[in-house]
Design a binder for these strands. Structure first.
Length: 711
RNA sequence: GCGGGAUUAGCUCAGUUGGUUAGAGCAAUUCAUUUACACUGAAUAGGCCGGGGGUUCGAGUCCUCCAUCCCGCACCA
């Protein structure tokens, strides 16, 4: 027996060495797997941010995915799991600026992007190293980065094809403007926070017959109409009439009274000031009632710097909040303000950075049209292409209830604004402008045309991930073999951001689904049910946990008690418990090896030992079913229970007598060895390091990672 | 407003399609100690499975109502 078993299991002495054995074997790359691995099984790793470090969420993700891929590899599949990192445009640019304490305006754009990129490639090494410590069997030869040259080609191709199909349009449109981040953001990058705001009730001028209510009186400088409910008796008489008003300091506003069913009679005064330039709903309403035309220049009164523009000279250049005070003051002086009340309502904020979101018109904005019928896809729209495969079951989402959430999101989906004003990211390809005109062309259309220097929403490139990592747009062997990918495993919090966009891109560009099964895991919380975050200081660092308890214990702790789609709680106690388990396996091995030193092959198995083997086979069947049906947490628990409380507590205890009995000795030895080996196989996807280490010491020819799963 | 989830032992959670006596980890109590392993073992205690009603031979599991907590989406003048 190898003497390493004489001392307790020391993960730190095993893990690095075993990981190297795996890497050297080349088996992370499917092309190097033994020839009996034929049927492909593929997954992409949801790329962590380059600047990130491993946190509990990513540890859980890696644990589940590595379990899936190791299981499939042992099932004889030609397994590919592709690693990568995400340039995470806004997140990285913000973090860089903060870390380096600089402003991007101190540099040329070119220089700045180069600096961020160097920084990103530098920090990338940290997260890659940490992924390895957890035992992730990723094919590092295919490592991708969302902003590398191959992905740039894919982004350009995708953009051009969508543009040529008329799915991307450009123009002056209302956008969500993140005042703090100084960029546009997509609808689902907005979070609504409940805040107390003042609701002001007032008239524009004494001659105006209707009072309106607003929490943003400064936007009223751009009003064109007042909308009321058609059945509202208070206002019926005014519908269709127009009024010339003298609003703040005498600004002339011509206000028409319109009627629309969507107006709530109960809220405020039941009359709404319509501001096409600063509200999407108002814009739609104004368009519907013919107050504006589609390509009309809107009257914008708040700038991207949050200051008043195009208004009275006494207000221009004031910050919008200062202007609000001035307006209220003026309304009071003119006896036009009739009510001020505090109301609680949802205020839009940027999900990243928390900046105030302003709605305003912005030119040169690119949008993906989600409703346009696509001739080359049976006249289906992107919305339909996203919806269909989930309805028809070509994509299965686990847990199933998220399918409903997905449909609800699609139903409310609006065109996707993909322009961003940050610098770090994919440039919008081949885009030029002259004043308000925009052209897409490989070469500069004329000497007076300038390149548009916006970048693309980071999810545009992430959406291509399942195939851009396989070589697309080139027609590669990888693409043919591994796409659609088999399983996509990720947190439910990026169902819309990422999963939906991958389906969109793959359905349009390839005409097929990006993956067949989506497995969603929940958020990891601390023992007090709080979200794990740096600001709360409750961050349990998986890197520390691995150092302290070993990667195998961390994997088991992450997986057990974590059912699909549900949030889970984690505490250091749990890691400790599975470190004990690792040691238990170690000692089981010591016992078996000590007692089988003189074992010689035999065919004679005592009936009582046959029963033990039969029980084990039942477990194998049970666990295999759990694995196939994505119940990894249950499989792990069952194996754990078997190894500790059946094998160690009962089988080994009872074997002590048999081993002293010469007639039973050989049979007992064979049984012990058999159960040990089968247990190691079952445990391998969950606890790869210790099981491989033991396997090596059983003098096996083949690595456990490519040993067939027991039947 | 629409939708979803949770509620099971002191704590944290499992419980697959309804089917014997509802499980695990941690915590608690008692006992064992020249043991493969104290990172141990054996045993004990602890549960009207949130509440009411229903379906069923049978409900933690299915239906319905209610309560509390959490989440998503929409509205947000």
């Amino acid at each position: 027996m190898n003497e390493i078993f004489l001392s307790p299991y020391k993960p730190e002495e095993t893990e690095g060495r075993i990981y190297k054995v795996w890497v050297d074997s080349g088996f992370f790359n499917p092309e190097n797997l033994p020839s009996e691995h034929v049927d492909p099984f593929s997954m992409v790793l949801p790329p962590p941010n380059v600047t990130g470090t491993l946190h509990m969420g990513s540890a859980l993700m890696l644990a589940i995915e590595d379990i899936i891929i190791r299981y499939q590899r042992m099932q004889g599949k030609k397994t590919l799991w592709i690693p990568g990192t995400d340039h995470a445009a806004i997140a990285t640019e913000t973090k860089f600026l903060k870390d380096k304490k600089i402003s991007r305006n101190d540099y040329t754009r070119e220089k700045f992007v180069q600096m961020v990129n160097e920084y990103a490639l530098d920090t990338q090494q940290t997260i890659i190293k940490q992924m390895k410590t957890l035992g992730a069997s990723l094919d590092w030869s295919r490592l991708a980065f969302t902003l590398d040259d191959n992905r740039k080609k894919a982004v350009e191709e995708a953009f051009m094809r969508m543009y040529e199909a008329g799915l991307i349009y450009v123009g002056e449109r209302l956008v969500n403007w993140d005042l703090k981040g100084q960029t546009t953001v997509a609808d689902d990058e907005i979070e609504y926070e409940s805040e107390e705001s003042m609701l002001y009730t007032f008239k524009y001028s004494p001659n105006f017959p209707i009072e309106i209510a607003s929490t943003l009186p400064e936007t009223k400088l751009a009003d064109v109409a007042v909308a009321v409910h058609p059945e509202d008796n208070r206002y019926k008489q005014y519908i269709g009439k127009s009024f010339d008003t003298k609003f703040v300091n005498g600004i002339g506003l011509n206000i028409k009274i319109i009627a629309d069913e969507s107006i709530d009679k109960e809220f405020g005064t039941g009359a709404v000031g319509i501001t096409p330039a600063h509200s999407k709903k108002d814009y739609d309403l104004a368009l519907k009632h013919g107050l504006i035309s589609k390509n009309q220049k809107l009257h914008q009164v708040i700038s991207e710097q949050g200051k008043i523009i195009n208004s009275h000279k006494s207000l221009n250049d004031l910050k919008f909040k200062e202007a609000r005070e001035e307006i209220i003051k003026w309304l009071k002086e003119n006896n036009l303000l009739t009510k001020e009340e505090k109301i609680s309502h949802e205020v839009p904020r940027a999900q990243r950075g928390g900046g105030i979101i302003l709605t305003l018109p912005k030119r040169h904005q690119f949008f993906v049209d989600v409703n346009k019928p696509i001739p080359e896809r049976d006249n289906k729209s992107l919305k339909e292409l996203m919806r269909e495969p989930v309805v028809q079951g070509q994509i299965k989402i686990l847990p199933e209830r998220f399918e409903k959430v997905y449909f609800q999101w699609i139903d409310n989906l609006r065109d996707w604004n993909i322009s961003r004003q940050i610098w770090y990211g994919h440039n919008i390809p081949n885009a030029w402008y002259k004043e308000d005109d925009v052209q897409i062309s490989k070469n500069q259309p004329g000497s007076d045309w300038k390149p548009i220097d916006d970048t693309l929403d980071t999810w545009f490139s992430s959406g291509l991930w399942t195939f851009s990592t396989l070589g697309w747009p080139n027609d590669t062997k990888d693409l043919k073999t591994y796409h659609p990918t088999s399983v996509l495993e990720t947190g439910y919090d990026i169902l819309f951001f990422w999963i939906a966009r991958m389906i969109l891109m793959s359905q349009f560009l390839l005409g097929e689904v990006p993956f067949k099964t989506v497995y969603l895991h929940g958020l990891v919380r601390d023992e007090k049910n709080r979200k794990i975050s740096k600001s709360l200081g409750n961050n349990i660092d998986p890197v520390d946990m691995i150092a302290k308890y070993g990667a195998d214990a961390v994997r088991m702790a992450m997986i057990i008690g974590t059912s699909v789609g549900n949030d889970s709680k984690i505490s250091t106690e749990k890691f400790k418990a599975y470190k004990h388990f690792a040691n238990k396996i170690w000692n089981i091995t010591r016992f078996v090896l000590e007692n089988t030193k003189d074992y010689k092959e035999t065919d004679e198995i005592a009936p009582k030992h046959k029963d033990l083997i039969k029980n084990l086979e039942d477990l194998i069947v049970d666990v295999t079913k759990d694995m196939d049906e994505f119940r990894f947490y249950m499989a792990a628990e069952k194996i754990y229970h078997y190894v500790w409380h059946e094998f160690a507590d009962k089988i080994i205890e009872e074997s002590k007598n048999d081993l002293r009995d010469e007639t039973l000795k050989k049979s007992a030895q064979k049984t012990l060895l058999h159960i040990l080996e089968q247990s190691l196989k079952l445990l391998h996807p969950f606890m790869p390091f210790i099981t491989e280490e033991i396997w090596q010491n059983l003098s096996k020819q083949q690595l456990l990672m490519v040993t067939p799963w027991p039947k």
